[in-house]
Amino acid sequence: MIDLGQHWEFIAATYAGSVLVIGALIGWTWSASRRARTRVARLEAARKARKA
């Protein structure tokens, strides 16, 4: 473990908070993108079925 000196708890909190927020941002972006893609695929398939 690296020695972060006397204020290690604030440094740890900074990085933990940043990881949390950025992780949530990435997760949200990714899940929204996935949801949109599966939905559009289903709709395209339905349209093809309708046209056929």
Partner: peptide
Amino acid sequence: LHLVRMRTEVTRRRIRSL
């Protein structure tokens, strides 16, 4: 993130018209 979110938004608009 911006690029992925833009792509999602374009897809959402496509969903809406579909």
